[in-house]
Simulated assay, not measured.
Amino acid sequence: MYYVYPLYYYPACYHHASRSVRQYSSVDPDLFQQSANETKKIMNDANVIIDELAESQTFHEKLMQAAQASDQNEVNRLIHSLDIATEVDVSFNPDNLRLEFRSKTADTNLECCRLLIALRWR
């Protein structure tokens, strides 16, 4: 049996002479910093809701009963009764609760950040 070994190796992609340098735009951290600050506010509001769910037996029982009965108005009322400033979209089914917090920057009114929390009870 004979084996033929290659004498030379040629890489499939070889660009020694023509390396391109990508030009990036200048960095402006203002929007990024605003997004981080808005996210801190969102997380504080989310923490208010999570604390209430974790500590108040009557609150989470009312919320679960309303969700299992598909009472969107009551679920929204319960969530928004907790003194939160952030816009929150509430969706649910008989098994879980989903809270999606959204915020916009004050300067540009662009949506800058979202926080999604999904909690199961079954």
Rank of each mutant, 00 (worst) to 15 (best):
M1H: 09
M1C: 05
Y3C: 14
Y3H: 15
Y3I: 15
V4R: 11
V4C: 10
Y5T: 14
Y5F: 13
Y10F: 14
A12Y: 11
A12I: 14
H15G: 02
H16Y: 15
H16W: 15
R19L: 02
S20M: 05
S20H: 04
V21Q: 10
S26I: 15
D28N: 08
Q33I: 13
Q34M: 08
A36N: 01
N37D: 15
E38V: 03
E38S: 12
T39P: 00
K40G: 04
I42T: 04
I42W: 08
M43Y: 00
A54W: 00
S56G: 05
T58F: 11
T58S: 14
F59E: 05
H60T: 06
E61W: 09
M64K: 15
A66R: 12
Q68P: 03
Q68I: 14
Q68C: 10
Q68H: 09
Q72I: 14
Q72Y: 15
Q72C: 13
N76W: 12
R77E: 07
R77Q: 13
L78M: 10
H80E: 13
H80F: 14
S81C: 00
D83A: 15
T86E: 08
V88T: 04
S91N: 09
P94K: 13
P94R: 13
P94S: 15
L99I: 02
R102G: 06
R102D: 07
S103M: 13
K104I: 02
T105L: 06
A106C: 02
A106T: 11
D107T: 14
D107E: 12
L110W: 05
E111H: 00
C112D: 05
C113T: 11
R114H: 02
L115D: 01
L115E: 01
I117E: 00
I117N: 00
A118P: 01
A118I: 12
L119D: 01
W121G: 05
R122T: 14
